Measured scan of single mutants.
Amino acid sequence: MSGNGNAAATAEENSPKMRVIRVGTRKSQLARIQTDSVVATLKASYPGLQFEIIAMSTTGDKILDTALSKIGEKSLFTKELEHALEKNEVDLVVHSLKDLPTVLPPGFTIGAICKRENPHDAVVFHPKFVGKTLETLPEKSVVGTSSLRRAAQLQRKFPHLEFRSIRGNLNTRLRKLDEQQEFSAIILATAGLQRMGWHNRVGQILHPEECMYAVGQGALGVEVRAKDQDILDLVGVLHDPETLLRCIAERAFLRHLEGGCSVPVAVHTAMKDGQLYLTGGVWSLDGSDSIQETMQATIHVPAQHEDGPEDDPQLVGITARNIPRGPQLAAQNLGISLANLLLSKGAKNILDVARQLNDAH
């Protein structure tokens, strides 16, 4: 009898209710805020589980004197976190989706994509230029951005401005803007500013005609071990179906173009009346040469937790077992079709030249 009692006690200790789920994140304040929001949602869904947040620095956090596009290494903000995932030191990792490459290392998958916040870019102005827009900034004003995508589009749109690289986390960039006289304004992701509670610093939100956004911008991705079915089931509740389908289309477009950090590629997606609209573009580094096109596809946005595919093969690095396969494939095909259209119009040449120029500098 006593033996059975011990077995029952052991089973209770090993039951999922007692389990601590370890969540990996970057150390920056924004990353911690984003991770806290994901953990809060998981806690609400699984009140019996405990969650421990483990923060670590990544290569991208450490190399702050070089433009991201020049470092010449993929997975700048993800490699150390993936290493911890691989060694079973954490069970899942919360990322900004735009930091996750469209091809993940073997053994990993994006197990959830959370509801997207505003994906557009924002302009934050130096205190002396508050009330201005990019259009009304004085001639030769210097605007800071760490992104080739932003610089290429904005140089084309605002030729009277000069664009220079600015690195560091959000706090560091804002301090550089406010305390030094080098920059009249800087460009940042609206979602990051909003998550930090800095709505009052948003001086201008850039519309798609001015600057399309990065693939996955404004959404959070939760990376897990691809074979860890328990954790895949656990994080599945975080999937937002519309965000998922938009981001599958965007990531398929980028992957098929073979774009990345070192080339200016941008997108804009919208879901309306059962249609998914995808606009994508590529630019030369100075913005003088560009190709942009829009395509659409009829896609039914499923309700969360309709029964999805059981075999769960990944699409552009994403596993969404609780979302039907048909809409996911339709979104992926839309991204591939748009990429093929741009490639047929000469996108590869623009991107190759951009890559060579970026590598040469």
Rank of each mutant, 00 (worst) to 15 (best):
E179W: 09
R26F: 00
V301G: 13
G60S: 01
T35Q: 02
N88D: 05
L68T: 05
H126I: 15
A249F: 01
F51V: 14
N349P: 10
Y213S: 04
F158Q: 09
H256K: 05
G281H: 05
H268L: 10
V301Y: 09
E73S: 11
T243E: 05
V130N: 12
V301M: 05
L137C: 06
E210K: 01
I350C: 06
A252D: 07
V90Y: 05
A226I: 07
L276N: 00
K176E: 09
L238G: 01
M212T: 12
G197A: 04
A266V: 15
A320H: 00
P47L: 06
T35M: 10
I54S: 08
M56C: 04
N322L: 06
L104N: 03
S75E: 05
L85S: 03
T58P: 06
D312T: 01
N349D: 12
G107D: 11
R201Y: 15
T319P: 05
C211F: 15
W283R: 08
L49G: 11
H239S: 12
Q50Y: 13
H268F: 13
D91F: 00
K62T: 01
E242P: 14
R321D: 04
L81N: 02
L351H: 12
G221N: 00
A214V: 02
I113P: 02
K176A: 09
D99S: 02
A303G: 05
D233S: 11
A331M: 04
F253H: 05
A44Q: 10
L245A: 14
L49I: 07
T58N: 12
G168M: 00
A360I: 05
F51Y: 09
L100F: 02
D359G: 13
P302R: 04
G60V: 11
V224G: 05
V235F: 01
L68F: 05
N349V: 09
L276V: 13
E86P: 01
Q296S: 08
G144H: 02
Q155M: 11
R32V: 09
L254P: 01
L92T: 07
I187N: 05
D61R: 00
S284G: 11
C114W: 09
L68R: 13
A152Y: 09
L338T: 09
C261D: 05
E82G: 04
T294Y: 00
K62Q: 15
H126P: 11
I205Q: 15
P127S: 10
R22E: 10
L174P: 03
L254Y: 00
D352I: 01
P241Y: 02
F51R: 02
K43Q: 11
A320W: 14
V263M: 06
W198S: 09
T59F: 15
H120P: 04
L100R: 00
K74D: 05
D312E: 10
Q194I: 01
I166M: 13
P101A: 13
G335F: 11
G236S: 12
A219F: 00
A112N: 00
A320D: 09
K27N: 14
R156Q: 12
R175D: 07
G72S: 13
T172R: 09
G131A: 11
L85Q: 06
V316K: 01
P313A: 14
Q296P: 07
A152T: 13
C114S: 12
V215C: 15
L42N: 01
H207D: 08
R26Q: 00
G317L: 03
Q356F: 03
D91G: 05
Y277C: 08
Q180R: 13
R251P: 05
P309W: 05
D240M: 04
E293F: 07
